[in-house]
Design a binder for these strands. Structure first.
Lengths: 128, 128
DNA sequence: CAGAATCCCCGAAGATACTG
DNA sequence: CAGTATCTTCGGGGATTCTG
């Protein structure tokens, strides 16, 4: 049975803020996208290089995630007409606008790691 | 010695950076955590309120994600000994250190939305 | 209300093989 | 090399029910 507590639905300003968060997260979904962008932030990469550098990802997933990033114009794919075809991926100018976010994520991660180590306990970054 | 340009596995500095990104993402995994933190950033919330405000989440998922956030000391759970028990969730001081990230995410989302609208096409934030 | 327990399904994602 | 195609498995997560 549905309980109704009916409080104020939610201030509009809050909804907008949350909507914005969702907009971003819809694009950066999947556990690989951020990581892929992280690797690409160091420069152009070929498919195989990415697969090697994004630890644990399979070719199918990599292909799929890259395609999604490309659709959203965050990554650019370039094909070179060599004998065995060569493909390079790089972050677009628009994609670079994400660097602020990724930078903050990296910064926090570094701080967090220090915190974990400092706190004697053998606790590790637990997720699940 | 070796004159050939070695394909270094990956510069150490880069690995550290990527590791930091992973550390953060391991904690903010799942499609709900960021959203939950976003809602909680507006203040203390009860279980049902969260479920209503984090659109689409089920009680099982909400419970699970909250537990994980609690383990990582990003969220604090308080139980009040009322007739039907009352439970409140709030962001911890440590959790607030994530506000920078979440703020940037929201900022980017807002910008992105504008960009999408501006670009005539009916393109919408595509994820998959 | 706050959640745990159950049942169950569908899609994410791995492994493998194949192609231009 | 850079993917695509196919098959299959596994568990995330939804719906529902139950309890303190």
């Amino acid at each position: 049975m549905n309980q109704k507590i009916e409080k104020k639905p939610f201030p509009e300003s809050c909804r907008v803020h949350l909507q914005a968060i969702d907009d971003t997260m819809d694009i950066l979904n999947g556990k690989w996208k951020i990581r892929i962008l992280g690797v690409l932030s160091f420069g152009t990469r070929r498919f195989m290089e990415l697969q090697r550098e994004v630890e644990g990802i399979g070719s199918k997933m990599l292909s799929k995630e890259l395609k999604e990033l490309e659709i959203n114009e965050l990554v650019k794919r370039t094909v070179y007409d060599t004998k065995p075809v060569t493909v390079e991926y790089e972050i677009t100018e628009y994609g670079k606008t994400l660097h602020v976010i990724i930078g903050e994520i990296a910064k926090w991660g570094a701080q967090h790691r220090k915190r974990i180590l400092r706190s004697g306990t053998v606790r590790k970054p637990v997720a699940a």
